[in-house]
Every structure is written in structure tokens, then in C-alpha cells.
Design a protein around this nucleic acid. Structure first.
Lengths: 146, 146
DNA sequence: GGCATATAGTTAGTTATGCAACTATATAAA
DNA sequence: TTTATATAGTTGCATAACTAACTATATGCC
């Protein structure tokens, strides 16, 4: 096996697993410590709804890079938690519009503060320009494969 | 909400989801196209065993950044697929040594070639030095949170 | 209008993760 | 030696992901 193949195998584990799951776990832990009992996946859905409320499940799929079954179940669980409601679309009877409840609106400020703090923990000692360069690489990887 | 908090929220999605899941999906797809019916998680366990065969589940946990239940079940499934066997450790009766079967050894060359090719697809147009810099950032993130 | 096709969303089955609780064995301290 | 503690691994429960198959509605074409 050529040496560069080995190094790329190592890289795979870096990009694929380590940093992303570490951030996810830490964010989940920080939520829990403040008594916020939602998963980070649920939070990421709320995150898009806070930016734009009342969008369809399909729009949530696109925004959050998930497939339709994943969004169906995340919305199921968010509905059980009384954080969102499915409303029939007035223009398309196949489609639901997902709207935030007051409970979810109340979570915005606190969870965004925790997410911001978590990202600060994660990026401690990393310069803004290195972060930007890493973003560009990861975006390029995504674009190469989508 | 201050503007830089918003930008960091965007960054979160970069690091957490996009690139890593895109690579995982593409690798899975490339395996499947060549008729290799294992998951990338199973492959990542084999990957460590190819480097060093006959290690304990705990060593697999450390090497693959997974917790013990995850490794227990991955080894369960790999055993069902006749790709590994649990052997009792001769020195510690609590411990299993996980050894590759001949079937698993046969998968090495083909899957490494696919993984290498997939990573080439992913990194197309990204310079080696940018890859190295991104690796450093992701490693730093991991170290910050572990 | 009627038919083919595309789109929105749901359901079922398998795999994987995280967490907590558990068993069994090993090690260290009294 | 006995007791406490640490370690290796398993099991149960909840959540989430991917794939494939499905229902219902919309759209485009004849």
C-alpha cells in the first residue's frame, strides 16, 4: 500500500468522526447541564425554524441536509415535546408547514448562547483565519460529493 | 444576537454534519456499487484490525473513538458476517481479542482501494497543504473537547 | 378530461450512537 | 486475606440515520 494511501485513511477518521462527534457530544452535554432536554438533532431543526418559521418538511430536509424520513421523525418527536406543530399548507395539500410553538421560541436565546459557548470551547486556540480556511476545505469536500 | 454568533452557528453545521456525512455516504455508496455489503462503521473497525490484528475491544474503542457498547455491537455484527472472531485473552479473562477471519483479510485490498478513491473524489481541487491545515484545526477541536 | 410522472410525506426494517445499569474479573489497599 | 475500586465487556432503552416501499396530491402532456 503506498504511503499516501495510508495517510489519507488517517485523514478519513479526522474528517469523518472525531471533531464533529466531539462537538455534538459536548453540545448535548452542555444542553443537559442547563436542564435543556432536547437532542442536538432536534435543536438543529429548531435552529432552521428560528431563521424561518413555517417552512415545509422538504425545506427542512434541504436546510438541514437530512432525508425525508429523518425529518418526519424529528418533527414527530418535536411535536410530542410540544415544540412545533404541523399545519396543513394552504396552497399544497401534500405539504405540511412546520411552525414553532411559544415553548420553542423561549428556547432560542438560551440554546444559542450555549451553542456559541460550545463553539468557543471547540475553537479555543484556533485563529479565525484557520477556521475560515478549514471551512473552505470542508465546503469543497461537500461540493465535490453532493 | 450578535453577528459573529450567527456565523459560528453556520460553522457548526459545516464541522458537524456536511463534509463528514457526505464522505460517509459516498464511501457507503462506492462499497455497494462494487458489491461489498458492509457498513462503513464495520469497515472502520476492520481498518484498525488490518493495522493490528488480535487486539481487545477496549483497544478498538480507543482506536476508533467509540464507546464500549458501540464496539460490542459492531463486533457482534462482524461476527455474524464471519469477518471477525472473539477469542478469549490468555492473560485477562475479562477481555476478548478480536481476530480477523480469512474472509476479512480478502476484503483489505479492494476496500482500501475504494476508500482511497473516495477520498480522492472528496479532496478533488484541495491542495495537500490546505488538507494538512484543516486536519490541524480538526485535531485541535478534538483535543479541546476530549 | 385522462394518464404518466413528479413531489410531499409516512412507514417498516436494519444499523448505529449515547447513556445508564449491570456482571465478571483484576488490582490495590487495609 | 478481605475489601474496595477499577476495568472489560454486555444489555436495555431512546434517538437517529439510510434504504426501500408506500399513499396522496400535483403537474404536464395527449
Amino acid at each position: 500500500m503506498p504511503n499516501n494511501q495510508f495517510r489519507r485513511g488517517e485523514l478519513y477518521s479526522f474528517i469523518t468522526g472525531m471533531a464533529s462527534t466531539a462537538i455534538a457530544r459536548r453540545l448535548q452535554k452542555n444542553f443537559k447541564q442547563e436542564g435543556i432536554e432536547i437532542t442536538i438533532e432536534q435543536w438543529s431543526v429548531l435552529y432552521h425554524l428560528w431563521k424561518k418559521d413555517g417552512i415545509s418538511q422538504q425545506e427542512l430536509c434541504t436546510a438541514s441536509f437530512r432525508d425525508k424520513p429523518s425529518i418526519t421523525r424529528l418533527v414527530d418527536n418535536l411535536e410530542k415535546l410540544k415544540l412545533v406543530k404541523r399545519m396543513p399548507s394552504p396552497t399544497d395539500r401534500r405539504s405540511n408547514l412546520i411552525v414553532l410553538t411559544d415553548n420553542a421560541k423561549k428556547l432560542h436565546d438560551q440554546t444559542m448562547e450555549i451553542a456559541s459557548r460550545t463553539l468557543n470551547e471547540a475553537l479555543e486556540g484556533v485563529s479565525a483565519s484557520d477556521v475560515e480556511r478549514a471551512k473552505v476545505v470542508l465546503q469543497q469536500v461537500y461540493d465535490n460529493l453532493k
